[in-house]
């Protein structure tokens, strides 16, 4: 573990999570969730969990984002809060 890298990645993760929760445009929210997933993936490489990391990159950042984008495009894009 490199603790400086750890700290930077944890900060980016929290920033992406806050943005995904607070932004009104749902497509932006989904893209921020995807970025959150990517930083989580880098965090796991940094912690030595490479199997979790590539599963996260394929499944978390890939499949989940595709499913969310399809649902957002088929329904409303704007959120009330």
């Amino acid at each position: 573990m490199i603790w400086q890298l750890d700290l930077i990645l944890l900060g980016l993760t929290v920033a992406c999570a806050l943005g995904a929760v607070q932004v009104r445009d749902l497509l932006t929210s989904v893209v921020l969730l995807s970025a959150f997933s990517l930083f989580m993936c880098l965090l796991w490489i940094e912690m030595g969990a490479v199997d979790v990391a590539f599963t996260e990159a394929a499944v978390g950042a890939g499949v989940t984002t595709v499913l969310f984008v399809v649902v957002v495009l088929k329904t409303e894009r704007e959120s009330q809060d």
């Binding site: 969730l33 969990a49 969310f68 649902v71 959120s79």
Partner: peptide, 28 residues
């Protein structure tokens, strides 16, 4: 949040936070 997609995004973040905790237990 009142939007259901937002709730789902929150559920995903919640899940990954727990996964982060358990994977952190293995780090040395």
């Amino acid at each position: 949040k009142r939007n259901l997609v937002k709730k789902l995004v929150g559920m995903n973040i919640f899940q990954w936070s727990i996964i982060l905790f358990v994977v952190s237990l293995s780090a040395k």
